[in-house]
Amino acid sequence: MTMRVDLPEETLEGVLAKALGNRSFLIGLVVTLLIVAVALVSFVWTPYDVTKLVIADKTQAPSWTHLFGTDHFGRDILSMIMVGARNSIAVALVAVGIGMGIGVPLGAFAAARGGLADEALMRVNDLIFAFPALLSAIMITAIFGPGAVNAIIAIGIFNIPVFARVTRAGALAIWPREFILAARAAGKGMTRITVEHILPNIATLLLVQGTIQFALGILAEAGLSYVGLGAQPPMPSWGRMLFDAQTRMVTAPWMAIFPGMAIVITVLGLNLLGDGLADILDPKSRRRR
């Protein structure tokens, strides 16, 4: 049986009531769901076909036929933003998955074993932190060439120490508690205690961190594809669209304005969601970012 002793007085209704009263959470949730919906809709419908180049319609200003205007190949910017959302979400989500999948077990193991294992893990963390995601991406690209998959790997690697740290810190706070002692007395092993008692108690921490890393992943992906290390054309991506817009700032500023706003709105929504979650799930938690 899983024990939830972290917030004994919290009921599901209580948390829900708090969630509905938290403005930051609500706005963040709505914006995030909206972006996800836009990405999903793009699979079945976009206003225009983004793979078709219509040179006759190139760099048209926003109008009723093209709400956000067209790019230098006559592609509809709104349609490209919709398809680009898929790429951003997929890259950031998988990168969070990599970070959690490797970082959480590492952090939990370090906290459970302590001593040399713990010290070794912290040093590896220091090592990975010394490589900003962009540098890892540059090295990975130097080996395998540019592409969305390599962007995912680079951002994912950077997420590993983040989750390892959060997990370790959270787990270290749980281990000395009485109910862990009880579980030990009952003869449960280290792995079982970690899975049954430690992880459920730090799940909220991980959820909040996951949201933050998701937002950072979207920003990082945009940066990487902007410098040509991410998704490759013709696959539309927000960063790539900004790169194309750069040399046309004077004649077609809308090419830069709308994809950038898509990034800002998505990241803002995720950050608000993360802040709100942190407030709802742990009133004592300090906001870090």
Partner: peptide, 22 residues
């Protein structure tokens, strides 16, 4: 500040170029 955190610096750079240079 919440808005500032969400702005990618290279996009912000493009907007600054548009405003102050162009």
């Amino acid at each position: 500040a919440q808005l500032g955190v969400a702005v990618p610096n290279f996009w912000f750079a493009l907007m600054l170029i548009y405003l102050f240079a162009v």
